[in-house]
Design a protein around this nucleic acid. Structure first.
Length: 344
DNA sequence: GATACGTGGTG
DNA sequence: TCACCAAGTAT
């Protein structure tokens, strides 16, 4: 086990990735930047996160400035990154750190985990990376590396338990460079022990890797197959005032796309909607459809345009905005819809 | 423990 | 092309 630690650290010293949230080798990390990057990286690729991280840190360089910002500003900047509960929790967490901890992030894993949006992994990662504490932190990369090195053939999520026990053994109880060890293991998983086509020839752990000896490291970790995604259908509306403005809606602040801006839509149902209900009095102009896949269902939205409706007084939650910049604050599904309508 | 919750890249 | 996947958390 100590060999593994040394191999990973040596490899990390020679191969560590340069990332915007990372300090120079050996330098102290800013807990705010560690926290912000870890939350953004939850289920999200490095490439997708980088521009958002740069935007956020430029606009809000520390936790107090983020805490002082209106939630709607934070949601606007988060638009397009997905999993919007993260942005709502991020803002709540910033306010709690600012108000309850005088703007200083706690270093203790359990205290970190009590904050909104910080779960088992993120709490361990912040404790280890920002404060160099020997805390267990198991993300998908480390899960994969461990499943291969120790040849854990039980499929996920059942394998979570033995993997978690393994992680606890590996991370806790050794206080030599715990932050670098966590990051080294993650970099190794991201660049060498990759989900497909692992580069075992470049791996510092290849010699003792049981998964490699078994002949099919790429098949690890195994997963139980996921259920097929159902489909849902609805309508999306492009309602203009004839003066370059379009009607938008702020969505309910919980649930799917909670608190985000969007175009007005009907409910999304499992049945394909019946257009004939409007009969020949149909005031809508059909504009094609938007296809989008969320985590747990496929969505088809039928587009409709209503032009020059300048007599509408927006109800609560609705407002007129300039067509040009309406998409910026919206999640991707609505950006697709805006693109559809503006292309005409 | 199971489910809700986004998005863009990839083979 | 399209199912799968990537630095998970909350309920």
């Amino acid at each position: 086990m100590d060999d593994m630690r040394r191999y990973v650290l040596d490899w990390y010293d020679a191969n560590r990735r340069v990332l915007p949230w990372r300090a120079a080798a050996g330098a102290r990390m800013d807990p705010y930047r560690v926290w912000l990057s870890e939350v953004m990286l939850q289920q999200t690729t490095v490439a997708a996160v980088i521009p958002y991280f740069l935007k956020f840190t430029e606009k809000w360089p520390d936790v107090n400035s983020l805490a002082a910002a209106p939630l709607d500003d934070v949601l606007r900047e988060w638009a397009g990154l997905g999993y919007y509960a993260r942005a709502r929790n991020l803002h709540r967490c910033a306010q709690m750190v600012a108000d309850l901890h005088n703007g200083i992030f706690p270093a203790d894993k359990d205290t970190l985990q009590s904050l909104p949006g910080i779960g088992d992994y993120t709490a361990g990662a912040i404790a280890a990376i920002a404060f160099d504490r020997p805390a267990a932190a198991m993300d998908g990369n480390i899960e994969r590396v461990l499943a291969r090195v120790f040849n854990i053939s039980e499929p996920l999520p059942g394998a979570k338990k033995p993997l978690r026990a393994l992680a606890k053994t590996i991370f806790e109880g050794n206080s030599y460079r715990p932050g670098d060890f966590v990051q080294g293991l993650m970099d190794l998983g991201a660049t060498v022990c990759t989900p497909r086509g692992p580069k075992c020839g470049l791996c510092p752990l290849a010699q003792g890797c049981e998964g490699r000896k078994s002949g099919a490291p790429e098949s690890l970790p195994r997963r139980t197959p996921k259920a097929e995604k159902p489909s849902r259908y609805g309508h999306v509306y492009w309602i203009t005032d004839g003066q370059g403005r379009v009607l938008i809606q702020k969505r309910e602040d919980r649930g799917l796309l909670g608190g985000m801006m969007g175009l007005p839509t009907s409910e999304w149902k499992a049945e394909i909607p019946d257009h004939s209900a409007f009969g020949k009095e149909n005031p809508l102009i059909s504009e094609g459809k938007v296809l989008h896949t969320f985590t747990h269902f496929h969505l088809t939205l039928f587009g409709h345009r209503i032009d020059a409706v300048n007599t509408i007084i927006p109800m609560k939650g609705f407002s007129w905005v300039a067509e040009q910049d309406c998409a910026a604050a919206m999640p991707s599904v609505f950006r697709k819809a805006v693109r559809l309508f503006r292309a005409r």
